[in-house]
Design a protein around this nucleic acid. Structure first.
Lengths: 149, 149
DNA sequence: CCAATATAAATGCAACTGCATCTATATTGG
DNA sequence: CCAATATAGATGCAGTTGCATTTATATTGG
């Protein structure tokens, strides 16, 4: 008598795995390259500026940003330092928590974010919109969401 | 009279973009963490060992590997150096091209690759197989392929 | 209230990456 | 055949990342 054996992982899962890596790598490195060519900051800066802009006048604490962006603590600490050194964010000390600080986007930060979008937006269009019709994008979005869950 | 304006990119494309990044980041960093915890080499080593194993006795030239793996030349050069220093690959000088070398996986290389798969395989199962039924994996695989094209 | 513990953020150091360049060998056009 | 150019691969250097630890302030249990 034969017993069915669990193979780990399934061939289709391996295919999804490799294609996820490929798709990500192609799209991401494409966009990063376009930003670099335009002498603009890397994508990670955009993410931070976006969150800070959303937070508006309230600002955000670094650890809040960390949760939103899923970065390691030290990585964010250093990103913020670079952003601050360019004048794109402001660090104010936090009056209800002496350990912390409150981050806010500056006018200069808003401006660079906008300039980045001029490259970033069309790059997404090129790497995503132009590859699939809307219905398939919808499907893909749902499936990726489940993978990331 | 109103003229329809191209928005760049579409909202659904932006969603796919962010979810692609999330899904990749969650799955990848999960697997890398598991490998590290098992004190095994990083994923990039596996890719190289896999290609060299497929090439078997014929071996591969670095530039061939580079094409398969889409790595920058200097990155591969250094990866190979590390792999060689651990005895996982062998570099032989190439007799039909004095500039080049021929890479082969060693017995030790095959062994570490196998040990990595013990962690890697189940990790893929956990991060991919267990998230979606087979039919959806098939769909996802096709869609990702189109994105990467 | 204070000692123990937890949390926010920074940082020293080693490893890794990206860029530009360099060396060595191959190929090609005159 | 040789000078010019192209290709294979390595490497110096500066910038970045990961890890572990440190500093400073908050919180918590006795």
């Amino acid at each position: 008598m034969y017993i069915s054996v669990m193979v780990s992982p399934s061939p289709i899962a391996v295919k999804v795995w490799t294609r996820l890596i490929r798709a990500h790598s192609k799209a991401l490195s494409g966009v990063e390259a376009q930003l670099k060519k335009a002498r603009l900051p890397p994508l990670s800066w955009y993410d931070i500026l976006l969150e800070l802009e959303r937070a508006d006048t309230g600002g955000l604490r670094p650890y809040e940003l960390q949760n939103k962006l899923l970065l390691p603590q030290y990585a964010l600490s250093r990103l913020i330092e670079r952003l601050a050194s360019k004048g794109f964010v402001e660090r104010a000390s936090c009056n209800d928590d002496g350990r912390g600080q409150l981050l806010k986007i500056t006018a200069k930060g808003r401006k660079i974010k906008e300039q980045m979008w001029v490259v970033y937006g069309p790059a997404i269009e090129q790497h995503i919109d132009q590859k699939l019709p809307e219905a398939e994008l919808k499907t893909l979005s749902d499936l990726l969401e489940k993978i990331a869950r």
